[in-house]
């Protein structure tokens, strides 16, 4: 299990003003974060740019040391037992870095495999398996400099899995991938977690991705975790449930009165506007009251032109939350 306890990270940068005069600037990127990740689970890390997600991931993957607080992975401290931790974790960041452009895809993987102490037929098999998983068999012996962006990103993913890590950190792994590749990656990630029992931390700005994949989500803002729940609960708690949209040709007094009563009863919100089809009634409520509303409309002798339910997405939740925080 990954355990992050009261972790702080302050970056100290020297900023040179003029020749030798410099001032130090401190950035508190992470302030008192607690979180945990179990094997066999995908945990999402959400937040605006600069929220501290990458910093957290780099600390968990031993690249940075926390300024204070502790991070342990299966009981091993990421600072004191760094070498042991390194062999059971790996990190994949979006973008094209972290590869040798002059080497072929296969040579890259061979090198990184060697750095983890893998060799011989074991490594060879692992490389072939990963290359086929990310769909790079054909390009395996082409220098990486001739790869497209998506191909480089897929090779990154194979690199991140070369040591068969127990815990994997994915920092915006689908950045710049096309729809079908991103989808295959998501399936692969699910397979890694559900079949192989790996623990994964995922950051992404594509919220559907988080919603689809993650068992739990932490929302970070300015270096702090401001919320932690399942995607479903987050959506529900923040956005106050579904929106029911109904279009009717007219609203008579009876309907108006009946609707108001119903709304009050369920503590819902109602908005009335008109569109090209007729009058649009939008009802937002925590509980699903579709049946009751439809019943009321029939009872008031009004025709129903159309009805659709808008399920709120995680994106709506985040936007609302961020508006609230700001």
């Amino acid at each position: 299990m990954i355990k992050v306890e009261q972790v702080y990270k302050t970056y100290i940068n020297k900023h040179r003003n003029f020749l030798f005069f410099s001032e130090t600037r401190q950035t508190e990127a992470v302030c008192g974060v607690d979180l945990y990740v179990n094997p066999g689970e995908i945990v999402g890390l959400l937040g605006m740019n600069g929220a501290g997600k990458t910093t957290l991931i780099k600390m968990m993957s031993t690249l940075l040391s926390p300024t204070s607080g502790t991070i342990t992975i299966d009981g091993m401290d990421v600072v004191k037992d760094a070498l042991k931790v390194k062999s059971i974790v790996n990190m994949i960041a979006g973008g094209e870095r972290m590869l040798y452009f002059r080497l072929t895809g296969r040579q890259n993987l061979e090198y990184f495999g060697n750095l983890y102490g893998l060799r011989g037929s074991l490594l060879k098999d692992r490389i072939n398996y990963l290359l086929s998983k990310v769909g790079l068999e054909k390009a395996a012996d082409t220098p990486v400099e001739r790869y497209s962006k998506g191909m480089k990103q897929r090779l990154q993913i194979a690199r991140g899995l070369i040591n068969d890590p127990k815990y994997l950190f994915l920092d915006e792994p689908t950045l710049g991938l096309d729809v079908s590749v991103a989808k295959r990656l998501r399936e692969f990630v699910q397979e890694l977690v559900h079949r192989e029992g790996k623990g994964i931390v995922l950051t992404s700005h594509y919220l559907e991705e988080i919603e689809e994949l993650c068992d739990r989500v932490y929302i970070a803002n300015n270096g702090r975790i401001i919320m932690h729940d399942t995607p479903k609960n987050l959506v529900f708690n923040i956005t106050h449930g579904n929106v029911l949209n109904i279009v009717v040709p007219e609203i008579n007094d009876k309907l108006n009165n009946n609707l108001r009563t119903l709304i009050e009863l369920h503590n819902a919100n109602i908005e009335i506007s008109s569109n090209e089809e007729g009058i649009l009634i939008s009802i937002k409520s925590k509980k699903d009251i579709t049946t009751e509303v439809v019943q009321t409309i029939y009872n008031s002798n009004v025709n129903l032109i159309s009805l659709y339910i808008e399920k709120p997405k995680l994106e709506d939740a985040i936007l609302q939350l961020e508006n609230g925080v700001a």
């Binding site: 993957s61 390194k86 790996n90 870095r97 990184f112 102490g117």
Partner: peptide, 12 residues
């Protein structure tokens, strides 16, 4: 080249 982190990420 942007490959320093991968080296330091490994226990090599």
């Amino acid at each position: 080249q942007g490959t320093l982190e991968t080296i330091f990420l490994s226990p090599a």
